[in-house]
Lab assay of single mutants.
Amino acid sequence: RIEKCYFCSGPIYPGHGMMFVRNDCKVFRFCKSKCHKNFKKKRNPRKVRWTKAFRKAAGKELTV
């Protein structure tokens, strides 16, 4: 099963990425440490230029 990165919305293939479980049992999956570090710094994915959330908000990503 291919999961989605919580921060950048990129695909996470089986055996890859990192799973972060908070004390309230909420699960966050990250494709790379870059995404996990930005999440820990409480960065907003919509303001980080390389994420899909930014591209969609800025009108750069074509949605079908």
Rank of each mutant, 00 (worst) to 15 (best):
F30G: 01
K42V: 06
E61F: 03
R22D: 15
K32F: 00
L62W: 05
I2H: 02
F54N: 14
Y13W: 10
C25I: 03
H36M: 12
K60Q: 14
L62A: 12
V64R: 05
F7A: 10
P45I: 02
N44S: 08
K47F: 07
K52Q: 14
P45G: 08
R55W: 13
K52R: 06
V48S: 07
R1Q: 10
V27M: 07
F39L: 02
M18P: 03
T51E: 14
G59P: 12
K52P: 14
M19P: 03
C25N: 13
F28N: 02
R55K: 12
F28V: 11
N44V: 05
K47Q: 14
V21I: 09
K26E: 15
R1Y: 00
F7G: 13
K47G: 12
T51M: 05
K56I: 11
T51W: 04
T63K: 05
C31V: 00
R43F: 12
I2M: 12
N44F: 01
K37W: 04
I2R: 01
S33R: 01
I2P: 08
G17R: 01
C5F: 01
L62I: 04
K42C: 08
D24V: 00
R49M: 14
T51S: 09
C31S: 00
K47L: 09
G59L: 08
H16E: 12
N44D: 13
A57H: 13
M18Q: 11
K42F: 03
R43S: 15
Y6V: 05
R43M: 14
K32Y: 01
P45Y: 03
F20L: 09
K56R: 04
K37S: 11
K52D: 15
R46S: 14
K32S: 14
E61R: 00
A58R: 04
F7Q: 14
L62Q: 14
K47S: 13
F39Q: 02
R55V: 15
P14I: 02
K26N: 11
W50Q: 09
Y13R: 06
A57D: 13
V48P: 08
F30P: 00
F28P: 01
A57Q: 08
F54R: 04
T63M: 12
R22M: 14
D24T: 01
S33T: 08
K32N: 15
K60G: 14
K32L: 01
C35S: 00
M18V: 09
R46A: 13
